[in-house]
């Protein structure tokens, strides 16, 4: 293009400048002026409005995610706590039941022992009374036997024609009974 400047001028191009519009320094001032304004506007739009807004949205989202995660962690630990409490209650209940069983057992044993002791005592008393009665009866029977034996002996002696000496007979009977 630049080789044929006349034709370039004819074509209505930038007649004064070189063929490359980029190197036409006459309009640099214009471009730089508007560019600087553009950059300043974009800088203020971004730094005052857009970037703080996006940063806040991102921070908020990050915060929400962190909070949600923390809440989930919290709930999880709560669930663990509840589970532990349940386990503890179960163990406690089991121990309580065992304690009650043992207590009852001890109580019953005590009652049983007491009852057995009472019964033993009663039995012993009854046995003692019985033995006494038996001893009495025995003694009575011995006496009766002695009397009967004396009488019988006396009668026999009499019947035999002897003279019944009461004292001798009694002595004899007593001796016999002892032997």
């Amino acid at each position: 293009m630049a080789t044929d400047t006349t034709s370039a001028a004819d074509a209505g191009q930038a007649a004064a400048g070189p063929g490359m519009p980029q190197l036409d320094f006459s309009n640099w001032g214009n471009q730089i002026f508007w560019l600087v304004i553009t950059l300043i506007v974009i800088y203020f739009v971004l730094s005052r409005i857009a970037l703080p807004r996006i940063a806040s949205v991102l921070a908020e989202r990050q915060g929400t995610i962190t909070n949600d995660l923390a809440a989930a962690e919290d709930l999880k630990s709560k669930a663990h706590e509840a589970e532990a409490a349940y386990e503890k209650a179960l163990i406690d209940a089991r121990a309580e039941a065992q304690r009650i069983v043992a207590e009852t057992k001890v109580g019953i044993q005590a009652d049983l022992n007491a009852a057995i002791a009472t019964a033993d005592e009663e039995i012993a008393a009854k046995a003692a009374a019985g033995e006494k009665v038996i001893a009495d009866i025995k003694a009575n029977a011995l006496d009766s036997i002695k009397v009967v034996a004396n009488d019988t002996a006396k009668e026999i002696v009499t019947a035999m024609g002897g003279k019944a000496d009461a004292k001798t007979i009694t002595a004899a009977v007593t001796a016999r009974m002892k032997g």
Partner: peptide, 20 residues
């Protein structure tokens, strides 16, 4: 084209602001 002339450069720079 002076320094403050509104040119096609101005237009497209303004459009880039609008795009941003």
């Amino acid at each position: 084209i002076g320094v403050f002339t509104i040119t096609n450069v101005t237009l497209w720079l303004a459009l880039s602001i609008v795009a941003v």
